[in-house]
């Protein structure tokens, strides 16, 4: 069966982002970009399913600018067989992304779509669930274990109280949590091979999806800064401060 893995190009998780002086957004010029960590986990899961013989083809897809080809190449170096770039310069919101992904799902007919549970830039955690709703598929979000069994998939989910396991009919949508797997590193030969794998570009307009956001970002500010307090010399001093100064115990 075929798996579709939507991935996103984001600011590398090690970068401490800075808000632009004009409050229009965050500084993205000359900032290191990478594949969203949760998307790496999604690619890894697809690759493991292929290694187990459950999956026959992995298609990576991204919606973004030309630069996002880099992340598609990474996905192919990690094991995706081919990839699709839906090109747009628009700040697409998750609903529009999900609509574009739906168009790809209709064309590719995957049995599984594996996404990250959230992108570490927008932190929205919406795209997978929206895609599932638009396509009428069942969803297993925040997955920490995925077991495909015939025409069903069992997904163990990380929830506030612990774990929940659900069973979904295929085709289904899965979004990955951190502990689903530990992604591998791409080897040099695989990086070379990935350069020859097919990468198709589709323009957003061809899909007939309106990417213009209906939610306007009015401004982006730095959070209230928290200044470092004081160092205490002993546990005794700490307890006394907590009791008498902060009055929290």
């Amino acid at each position: 069966m075929k798996v579709l893995v939507p991935i996103k190009r984001v600011v590398d998780y090690n970068v401490k982002v800075r808000v632009k002086a004009d409050n229009s957004g965050v500084e993205l010029a000359n900032v290191k970009m990478a594949m969203n960590p949760f998307c790496e986990i999604a690619v890894e899961e697809a690759v493991r399913l292929k290694e187990k013989g459950v999956v026959t083809e992995i298609v990576a897809v991204t919606i973004g600018s030309k630069a996002a080809q880099e992340q598609l190449r990474t996905a192919m170096a990690l094991g995706a067989d081919r990839s699709i770039l839906i090109e747009t310069e628009e700040d697409a919101q998750p609903l529009a992304i999900a609509k574009a992904l739906k168009a790809i799902v209709e064309k590719e007919q995957p049995q599984l779509v594996i996404l990250g549970k959230q992108a570490i830039d927008g932190d929205n955690s919406q795209t997978g669930q929206m895609l599932a709703a638009l396509t009428g598929m069942g969803q297993g979000t925040f997955a920490s274990e995925v077991v495909v069994d015939g025409d069903k998939v069992k997904v163990t989910r990380e929830v506030d109280g612990g774990f929940q396991t659900v069973e979904l009919k295929l085709p289904a949508v899965i979004t990955t949590d951190l502990r689903l797997n530990e992604p591998r590193y791409a080897s040099l030969p695989n990086i070379m091979k990935a350069k020859k794998k097919p990468l198709d570009t589709v323009s957003a307009a061809d899909l007939g999806v309106d990417f213009a956001p209906r939610t306007k970002t009015l401004k982006v500010e730095a959070p209230a800064a928290r200044s470092a307090g004081i160092k205490v010399a002993s546990v005794e001093e700490l307890v006394s401060k907590l009791k008498n100064e902060a009055k929290v115990i």
Partner: peptide
Amino acid sequence: EQISEIITVESADTFKRPIYAGNAIATV
């Protein structure tokens, strides 16, 4: 379009929400 994890209500259609792990606060 869903608005995720608002932390303030500015008006009936405007809200603040953290992005980038709380390193920036967007007013949307």
